[in-house]
Design a protein around this nucleic acid. Sequence first.
DNA 1: TATTAGCACTCCAGTTAAACGAGTGCTAAC
DNA 2: GTTAGCACTCGTTTAACTGGAGTGCTAATA
Lengths: 354, 354
Amino acid sequence: MAGENLELDERKIKILDAIIRNYLETGEPVGSRTISKYTDLHLSSATIRNEMSDLEELGYILQPHTSAGRIPSDRGYRFYVDHLMREKDREVTQMKEFVIEKTQKMEGMLKQVAKLLASNTNYATLVSAPSYNTNRIKFIQLSNVDSEHILAVIVMNGNLVKNRMIDVKETPDNETLLRLNLLLNSALNGLSVQEINLGTIAKLKEQAGSHITIVNDVLDALAETISAADDLQIYTSGATNILKYPELTSSGSATNLLSAFEEKEELFDLVTSSLSDAGDETGIQVYIGNESPIQTMKDCSVVTATYDLGEGVKGTIGIVGPKRMDYENVVDNLRNLKSQLDGIFGKPADEEGA
Amino acid sequence: MAGENLELDERKIKILDAIIRNYLETGEPVGSRTISKYTDLHLSSATIRNEMSDLEELGYILQPHTSAGRIPSDRGYRFYVDHLMREKDREVTQMKEFVIEKTQKMEGMLKQVAKLLASNTNYATLVSAPSYNTNRIKFIQLSNVDSEHILAVIVMNGNLVKNRMIDVKETPDNETLLRLNLLLNSALNGLSVQEINLGTIAKLKEQAGSHITIVNDVLDALAETISAADDLQIYTSGATNILKYPELTSSGSATNLLSAFEEKEELFDLVTSSLSDAGDETGIQVYIGNESPIQTMKDCSVVTATYDLGEGVKGTIGIVGPKRMDYENVVDNLRNLKSQLDGIFGKPADEEGA
DNA sequence: TATTAGCACTCCAGTTAAACGAGTGCTAAC
DNA sequence: GTTAGCACTCGTTTAACTGGAGTGCTAATA
């Protein structure tokens, strides 16, 4: 565990650890007498009191009011997460079988993941669908559907499919359509959407001749494919777990949290910022209180994991709960799920356009 | 308003009406003295008390406890909704512009509708996407995507598009693909999914020759298109409004309601049963307390409207709130929105496969 | 006969006061 | 440096009290 520390000696650390662990369990302020018995230090409550007084001065714990026990401060939690938390002996869970084999579709699977996580942890969970931003165009096809509509089908790497109905005044004949298909595919194939620049577009339009409008529509559809807000799906579960924690309901932030989980807009911010924060090498990130990217969550803790399917295809799994959440369990669960998801996409199953 | 009634004379009806209206406003049990002043009957509180006693015996109102005022019973609400409720002078709202013009996409529009309704009423709302069950196949197209995948695109009436990736061992050449496309289109075009019977399938497979597996996959995709649970999308908004009503939070049903709105599974039942209940000619249905199709909602009232885009394409808009909800306002809002939606689909805009 | 005034009674909601107890800080002794 | 002891603080719980809104009943009234 924690090695030498500038301001905390061995004993203080042990006491801090005991306080936090106890508080995580009970949710009640913990007093000196409790610690005196709980630890193997064999110190009297009076001694503990002195140490606690020091710890408070250092900002690791605080008193809700005079003559109450101590609770961890944000700084205390941070120290705990960084140095004190033990990794769980991971029991190899049967998640894989349960979650992944059973559902072929991305959407269903992610919903399952959120649900499973929520029931495992008793916190609110969210899972974002992978974002395909840096993905490349694999295939484009235009077809006549009826006299007024052309259907454009765009397949991206990873087999994400996007459809776009295009209104036309007159139906192009099959030959023209074939030519356009050839044109589009040869011009755009293999490009990521970012790589389609003005030059490409100009050339394309030049060659399209009288069918510029169709080409324009296809380009629009491509643009839409990356417009993140439109594409990014977020699945949530267990939001009502929030109501289980009095420190959230009484502080009044519960309602805001719940509607954030319903409307999901704020969750986008959470997901994107968690995707950009690198996290440590494990890809797991812990936000405590005000560290959270979202103001709404300043009274709770957020733990996120970023899963990476390769080729820049990434997504986020997150857990939102009270500051006194069971970090060990949560982190373990996330690490576990992450590793499962990281592996999946060797063989991309069939998915559907959002 | 209500004409003659077997057990209720004019005066009793007036009193009942006054009690319910007052209770809807305040949420507090209403006493005899209040009514004595509130109405233009000019009766003393004592007289009112006698009448109230009668009304209670008849089951229209009840006392939360001795020496409290009266509140409407389910039966009372029912009578109110059926006979007493006045229709609002509809101010022509600018909903259409706001909601409908601004968003081209079905999904976005329905989300907007839910949101608007929630903010208008302060209750929890849900909107189901139109179900295309009786819809017909318009167009099918298979294309080679890469060496291991064929993409099947299916367009239904109303321009609902469904994609399906099909794994293949070896790529069919273009000629074969063309033949299959022709085959599928001529065999299935214009059929609703229910109409595809064993005969059709057998004939199709016979003609498919060595490419049965592909045909099978296409048929699977078709089956999926109608599998309702998979297809039916529900958008919700304002679920947290539930927390505003003490009668729901204290009875403990709020949590269940909230998670019903989050998980949405129960809402499917609500939507389907509201779709099958014809409702009166207006297409609007009011469920009070136990009348609700869902047990979770037995402590509240549910008002639903069914919108009909024609061709069997239907959807539901619903509102969930306390029994003392503002029925007049709610019904008016629903009727309004319904009429807007009913009109929309003259020109089906572009949509995307689920 | 229908209505009203008056009164005793009920019961909830809100307030106050007291008792409790968990916990601290400090001091003095070990 | 550690501990025992004690006075003090402060939130929580319990109990008792009060006010008020509302009812039901009875007797008087129009």
